[in-house]
């Protein structure tokens, strides 16, 4: 597997960055479990100077909502959905687990704009979210339940099972075959999936989509906003300007 662009280092015990010219690179604070998954120490591919010059300087980032078990779980799920490959670095390295942590700590996770008055009833699926839990509470309730289900079914918790077993668990969460504790079938998978996609594709200002990797992957222009002279002149031609984030344009 060739990693196209890894300007930063994952995991404990890594002491240096090979070939990076930016000088403003700091290690990503990943959990010990995550470092283990990533093979402990990884050889970091040299970035081209051009790539590094346009990279956002990285800072140490701490989780403010997820506890260590939850962090390990979310990192495993994020890297399962967004694995490292030729297209991008892994989801965790792109900041998606950090993004989810920050979203859960903030207004979205705390259900800030959700109507949370009772009485509560399960309702029917077309009535939408009817559990008496905020999204953050849903993660807190679901993760131990799913780990317990994995231990019962596979003998290991979710972060420790194989890739194909993880696929199976996630699909079974969708159908309700896998237990997600107090949550109705499908709710947690939908929530997790939506949050992973948000972290992958949202502006890097929120902590995910590091270096606009997801935007570059699909050829999305980002926060750029003037195509008046291009929309009729680029028929069937790819847009070649770099993706721009809000920070790039600020």
């Amino acid at each position: 597997m060739s990693i196209k662009r890894r300007e930063f280092v994952v995991g404990a015990g890594v002491i240096g960055v090979v070939g990076v010219t930016g000088g403003s690179v700091a290690p990503q604070p990943a959990s010990a479990e995550h470092a283990k998954q990533m093979g402990g120490t990884q050889t970091v591919q040299a970035s081209s100077p051009a790539q590094t010059a346009t990279s956002t300087p990285l800072e140490k980032r701490a989780y403010t909502f997820l506890n260590p078990d939850e962090a390990t779980w979310v990192e495993a799920a994020v890297n399962h959905m967004i694995p490292a490959d030729d297209l991008t670095a892994s989801g965790v390295d792109l900041g998606i687990a950090y993004f989810i942590d920050q979203q859960l700590a903030g207004g979205f996770g705390q259900g800030g704009k959700m109507f949370m008055q009772g009485p509560w009833h399960p309702g029917v699926p077309q009535q939408g979210w009817q559990v008496r839990l905020s999204p953050a509470e849903a993660y807190r309730a679901a993760i131990p339940a799913i780990n317990a289900y994995c231990i019962k079914t596979y003998g290991k918790d979710f972060p420790s099972i194989t890739e194909s077993q993880r696929d199976e668990v996630l699909n079974d969460l969708g159908t309700g075959k896998a237990d997600s504790g107090p949550l109705p079938a499908g709710l947690f998978l939908d929530l997790l999936y939506q949050n992973v996609m948000e972290g992958f594709f949202s502006d890097p200002a929120y902590g995910g989509n590091r270096d606009k990797a997801a935007w570059k992957m699909i050829g999305y222009s980002g926060a750029t906003g003037n195509f008046v002279d291009l929309i009729e002149t680029t028929y069937n031609k790819p847009y070649t300007e770099p993706s721009q984030s809000i920070a790039d344009l600020s």
Binding site: K113, F115, A223, T224, G225, Q244, I246, L249, S250
Partner: peptide, 21 residues
């Protein structure tokens, strides 16, 4: 702009919409 070109805040989190809470 560029603040307004933020998909997460406006399109997904509904920043300009009624607060359902």
């Amino acid at each position: 702009a560029p603040m307004i070109h933020d998909e997460l805040r406006f399109a997904i989190r509904h920043d300009l919409m009624q607060d359902a809470s």
